[in-house]
Design a protein around this nucleic acid. Structure first.
Lengths: 156, 156
DNA sequence: TAAGATGGACAACGTGGTTGTCGGAAAGGT
DNA sequence: ACCTTTCCGACAACCACGTTGTCCATCTTA
């Protein structure tokens, strides 16, 4: 009995689904005044969150080194999505906080993701989509999004 | 009506599913004598295929430049998964061919992917898994795997 | 045969990640 | 109170992967 589909198609489909959603998100975002945000940035903004954080903490959340997190914060600061301020309670730390532009980007992202999900629901049906989400939840870890994608995928 | 799950979870789940499968594949591969293969390499070996190819053609298949493809081939050649030979019919071209080791890796990958799919089927049921695959097929493009992942995810 | 297109290599560059190092500041133990 | 340990952030060096630009040799085509 080997009428089962070959297993290698599964990861391909999963990744293509991910990529389609992210590409569509950023196409929309670009149209809505955020042309410079990259896929990575969205996840970083999400990880920073409304409360703000620090470089070391961000690195821990995303599974990357604090240095890498610091660099990413630098680039996000340059395009105006994030700002740093000293922590009055701890002179070592510099709190990273979303700017109004960063918050706007995050809010728009949430809406666009909801729209995209609705589009999938229109194709698959809400039932099937919920089943898909439930199934994926069963076979994936519940942890945070690991942001070491470039290094993970390619390097040794 | 907003009892629907938030849309941003969908890409996360899809990516985590992809990542879990790829990580498991490479953990197994490492145990089976292929510790140096990276996620990217697997897709490249697959794209090269049994018939061999050239750097420029490989770049086209994977959606990257011929230079990038050439570099990847270099690294694959260094670890002994691929070899180059001149094309007797076209002195410009150098045909890239899988070595025995490369073929072994590809064959093991196929088996491991099948095992992993079977594991998912054991958790979800074969029916649900087929439905998941069918649904993903409906919402993803049929094209090849785009290998520009590092650059796509991070750079501008 | 001359002009254009293609394959492969080299160089320069940008981005993202890593480790190593360091100084300053907080926390903990004696 | 002091000294040691821990932690934060920054700097530097390095590697991996992608890009564009350039170049030459070779095949194709007009």
């Amino acid at each position: 009995m080997s009428s089962d589909p070959p297993g290698y198609l599964l990861p391909l489909r999963l990744f293509l689904g991910f990529r389609v959603l992210i590409d569509e998100l950023h196409a929309q975002l670009a149209r809505q005044g955020h042309p410079d945000v990259r896929p990575m940035h969205g996840f970083v903004l999400q990880a920073i969150g409304a409360g703000g954080t620090t470089a070391a903490e961000l690195g821990r959340r995303l599974g990357i080194s604090k240095q890498a997190a610091g660099k990413t914060i630098d680039s996000l600061e340059q395009i105006g999505y994030v700002e740093r301020e000293p922590d009055p309670r701890d002179a070592r730390r510099r709190i990273v906080r979303l700017t109004a532009r960063g918050i706007d980007c995050l809010a728009r992202s949430a809406r666009i993701f909801d729209d995209l999900r609705a589009r999938w629901a229109a194709v698959l049906g809400e039932e099937r989509l919920r089943a898909l989400e439930a199934d994926l939840r069963k076979v994936t870890p519940s942890g945070a999004f690991p942001l070491d994608v470039p290094g993970w995928f390619g390097s040794s």
